[in-house]
Amino acid sequence: MTGKSATSRKMLLLAPLLLFLGLAYVVPFLGVVRWSFTLPEPGVGQYRALLTDPLVQSVFARTLRICLVVTAATLVMAYAIAYVWVRGSSVQRMLAEFCILVPFWISVLTRAFGWLAMLSNRGLINTWLQSAGIISEPLALARNELGVIIGMTHFLIPFAVFPIASAMRSIDERVLLAARGMGASRIRIFWTVFVPLTYGGLIGAALIVFVFALGFFVTPAILGGGRSVMVAELVYLRIFQSPDWGLGAAISVVLVLFIGVLLALMRRFIKPAHLVG
């Protein structure tokens, strides 16, 4: 019975958060759901439009494509950083930690513009390559999908590092020693023991990154230059520019449902505690 009152006391501590989530997200979202069935007229017309409108479909396809590529690129780079962070020398560890933490201090907007300064036609990379005589025409690095992918990957790497590093840390050193003692080379140990033991962290990281990427708005809007619109930007355009509130709302609902399914999958694969390291 003390247990029961202790639980209810803990619930009380949670109450402000629940209230905030309810007022700031659940209630407005229910409003959005209503719009999707009522604007411009009641019915499932907007959802039917989603299935037929080629523009909406191409945006969805592009979003999925970008998110898959971004997830893959992020995982590879985050794995390398996490490896150095967990198993490197003390100097390497400090460097890795710096690389992981610094992005958190700089706003998304600043970073997107920073990449624009690097990648645009007259940005650092193109000017340097041109003045070095390596290329004559500027490479199309920004204002396209490539730019979006670079910017998003850069943003998402730290979020993938934590679950991966957490999985790496929980590997028993003796298991690796055992493999060495049996004559296995370092490369073999890495691929047949180390990496498989971090699959949990990799799956967690993949889901976090993918879900996060699906809702990206600022980075694609700036680095895509309006030419590679992703779902979130499409919602924005429908609501603030067309104005086609019903369709925007329906797209939002589909996106939220999709993310909900992914999160449910994630819960099945990994414990939330593993994600924060």
Partner: peptide, 19 residues
């Protein structure tokens, strides 16, 4: 190095490959 000596070893806590 250990990998070339290749002695059998049973570690404290066994150190089996969990996967």
């Amino acid at each position: 190095p250990a990998e070339d000596r290749s002695y059998g070893m049973v570690f404290q806590g066994y150190a089996l490959f969990p996967h």
